Deep mutational scan, measured.
Amino acid sequence: MKHYEVEILDAKTREKLCFLDKVEPHATIAEIKNLFTKTHPQWYPARQSLRLDPKGKSLKDEDVLQKLPVGTTATLYFRDLGAQISWVTVFLTEYAGPLFIYLLFYFRVPFIYGHKYDFTSSRHTVVHLACICHSFHYIKRLLETLFVHRFSHGTMPLRNIFKNCTYYWGFAAWMAYYINHPLYTPPTYGAQQVKLALAIFVICQLGNFSIHMALRDLRPAGSKTRKIPYPTKNPFTWLFLLVSCPNYTYEVGSWIGFAIMTQCLPVALFSLVGFTQMTIWAKGKHRSYLKEFRDYPPLRMPIIPFLL
């Protein structure tokens, strides 16, 4: 059985960083990364991007050496992705923050609204209902991160945790300040508006959870398998008939419901920014589905049925 020789060059300087002799033909890129780490321990596998061309796409960890368009002496180019952190850690951090930050404003801890309001309670029912909904949303997200989601990528750049936390924590503080303010004004149409908004919120939260469970069942634990998601017997998953990412559709719907319930401008802005970002993600995933699966359902749109 022939063996391969693998040289790894710096993608920027073309400097030879490592030479691997007698590499098995069936070795994966993940195994080559581990061998590279032995000579350069500062670059652990998650930091490494190996590619066939200095400006090309990163090879997948599961790619097999003998199936790549290389000879028995293969040249790979290395790029440092920077310090990495696990997706689970990032999600837990960015979701735990809003949960606790919101509660600080809800309980009106000292130095927020003035001494005479310390630890007082709002007289408006919608304020307490909003706290329950907000807390439920982020507790749900935390539990899904721990027990439901299966991540195709193990890590992301460390800098992302600061960007994500600034976004989630900042908006949580902004909306919580106004919703729990002693001078907060309840919704214009009173109980009817709150009940309608609560119904929207609850339905969308159930829908979002149902989609996450359906997506989880598509991917076996520990794998990166991708399949076309289809509706199940659960009615909340029937939205798969019309959109590629109904989890985002339901998520946006939840925040629209919360915005109607609280009639709070920061919540509306958070919903708008979230919708914009999720639309970008949904379009990317939709394109990926179309590219990977020739039999992908043609009627589906990325996030909004028939429109977007």
Rank of each mutant, 00 (worst) to 15 (best):
H3Y: 07
H3E: 09
H3C: 02
E5R: 05
V6F: 00
L9G: 09
D10W: 01
D10Q: 02
E15F: 02
L17A: 02
C18G: 08
C18S: 08
F19A: 07
L20Q: 02
D21C: 08
D21K: 13
K22N: 11
E24L: 08
A27V: 10
A30G: 11
E31D: 07
E31M: 06
I32P: 00
K33N: 05
K33G: 02
N34S: 11
N34V: 00
L35F: 10
F36D: 08
F36K: 01
K38Y: 14
P41Q: 04
P41R: 01
W43H: 01
W43Y: 02
Y44T: 10
Q48D: 13
Q48V: 03
L50H: 07
R51S: 05
P54A: 10
P54Y: 15
K55S: 04
K55V: 14
K55Y: 02
G56C: 08
K57T: 10
S58M: 08
K60P: 05
Q66K: 06
P69A: 08
T73Q: 01
T73P: 02
F78A: 03
F78C: 01
R79C: 13
G82E: 10
W87L: 05
V88N: 00
V88H: 02
T89R: 11
Y95F: 02
G97C: 13
G97Q: 14
P98S: 10
L99A: 13
L99P: 11
F100W: 04
I101A: 03
I101K: 01
I101D: 12
Y102N: 00
L103A: 08
L104D: 13
L104P: 11
F105V: 08
Y106D: 03
R108H: 13
R108S: 00
R108A: 00
V109E: 09
F111P: 12
F111M: 04
I112A: 15
G114T: 01
H115M: 08
F119T: 10
R123Y: 13
R123P: 06
H124Y: 07
V126M: 10
H128C: 04
C131Q: 13
H134P: 04
H134N: 01
H134C: 00
H137Q: 10
I139A: 08
I139S: 14
R141Y: 15
R141I: 08
R141L: 02
L143R: 09
T145V: 04
T145N: 00
L146Y: 04
L146G: 13
V148P: 06
H149R: 02
R150S: 05
R150M: 14
T155P: 08
N160S: 12
F162P: 04
N164V: 01
N164S: 05
C165W: 07
T166F: 06
Y168Q: 11
W169R: 03
G170R: 04
F171T: 00
A173M: 14
W174F: 12
W174Y: 09
M175W: 02
A176T: 06
Y177K: 12
Y177T: 04
Y178K: 01
Y178N: 07
I179A: 10
I179N: 02
L183H: 09
P186R: 09
P187M: 02
Y189R: 14
K195V: 04
A197L: 10
L198Y: 15
L198G: 07
A199P: 11
I200S: 03
F201D: 03
V202E: 08
G207C: 02
G207W: 15
N208S: 10
F209N: 06
F209S: 12
I211S: 13
I211T: 10
H212S: 08
L218P: 06
L218I: 12
R219W: 05
A221I: 15
K224N: 11
T225Q: 12
T225N: 08
R226V: 03
K227T: 09
Y230F: 12
T232P: 10
K233V: 15
K233G: 14
P235T: 04
P235L: 07
L239S: 01
L239R: 10
L242I: 04
V243A: 10
V243R: 02
S244C: 12
S244P: 03
C245W: 05
P246N: 15
N247Y: 09
Y250C: 06
S254F: 06
S254R: 07
S254T: 08
W255Q: 15
I256A: 00
I256F: 12
G257Q: 08
G257I: 00
F258I: 13
A259T: 12
M261I: 08
T262L: 12
Q263K: 08
V267H: 02
V267D: 05
F270Y: 11
L272Q: 10
F275V: 08
M278S: 00
G284S: 07
K285Y: 13
K285Q: 10
H286G: 01
R287N: 14
S288N: 11
S288P: 05
S288T: 08
L290D: 14
L290I: 06
K291Y: 14
K291P: 04
K291N: 11
E292D: 08
F293W: 13
D295Y: 06
Y296R: 03
P297L: 02
P298V: 04
R300N: 02
P302G: 03
P305H: 03
L307G: 14
